[in-house]
């Protein structure tokens, strides 16, 4: 009975969404904001990757918020888990030599790849979030493959997440203080298009985000792994 009602209600909601979607022609560019990004993004931000120019420049404030959300979830998880003390040791089988060696071998390249992704965020697809996630997956690999051998350094991760966030905010505030007085303004010279040292503050922010996201996601994994 309850299920039936639920399904009927969901069908009504789906009907609502569909009627809305019908008014949007698929694939046709109607968004003038998007057009603006495509046409002027290169000149205004100096980033070759338009997505990055949107994420770190046009809508940098959202990104700051999202970084905070991620930060929050790590902190929140920590706060909740800190109060529940039901740690029990479980018997775990040690990983085989091949597996652990393989993991250890893969760890540096994955880290390197993540770093590459966020350093080149303004040039190639990807950026701080993706790079950070990749770095976190490297840690995940270590946790899975080499059980309990290498743990995330707590102090180190705290440093990188705090400094990452702070760097973002401080760059924003510098933008407010100098030049045209706008928060998160791209106050640095845009440089030569399509080179590593271009696009003003974008690479700096992306590096900060990369460190921060990497540290936070790894921390979440660390917290959960430690508990289980």
């Amino acid at each position: 009975m309850r299920k039936c009602i639920g399904i009927i209600l969901l069908i009504i909601i789906a009907w609502g969404i569909l009627t809305s979607l019908q008014t949007m022609p698929f694939g046709v560019s109607r968004a003038k904001v998007a057009n603006h990004y495509i046409n002027n993004g290169k000149d205004e931000t100096g980033a070759a990757n338009i997505v990055t120019s949107v994420v770190i420049n046009y809508r940098a404030f959202d990104t700051l918020g999202e970084v905070t959300v991620l930060f929050l979830s790590a902190i929140g998880l920590g706060a909740v888990l800190a109060t529940i003390k039901t740690r029990e040791k479980r018997d775990t089988e040690k990983a085989s030599l091949i597996l652990s060696t393989g993991c250890r071998f893969l760890f540096p390249p994955i880290i390197l790849f993540g770093a590459y992704i966020f350093i080149h965020g303004h040039l190639t697809p990807g950026g701080g979030f993706q790079g950070g996630a990749i770095i976190a997956s490297a840690f995940l690999l270590m946790y899975l493959g080499c059980h309990g051998e290498k743990r995330l350094n707590d102090r180190c991760s705290t440093f990188s997440e705090s400094l990452g966030g702070l760097a973002f905010v401080i760059i924003g505030l510098i933008g407010l203080a100098v030049g045209t007085h706008y928060f998160l303004n791209n106050f640095m010279p845009l440089g030569k298009f399509n080179t590593l040292l271009s696009a003003g503050v974008i690479p700096i922010i992306y590096i900060a985000i990369g460190f921060k996201v990497g540290a936070e996601l790894s921390k979440i994994i660390d917290l959960l792994m430690e508990e289980s």
Partner: peptide, 13 residues
């Protein structure tokens, strides 16, 4: 870029 995020976060983490 979305693919990258999806693979690492959605699939792995």
């Amino acid at each position: 870029d979305v693919a990258m995020a999806e693979a690492s976060i959605g699939a792995a983490l």
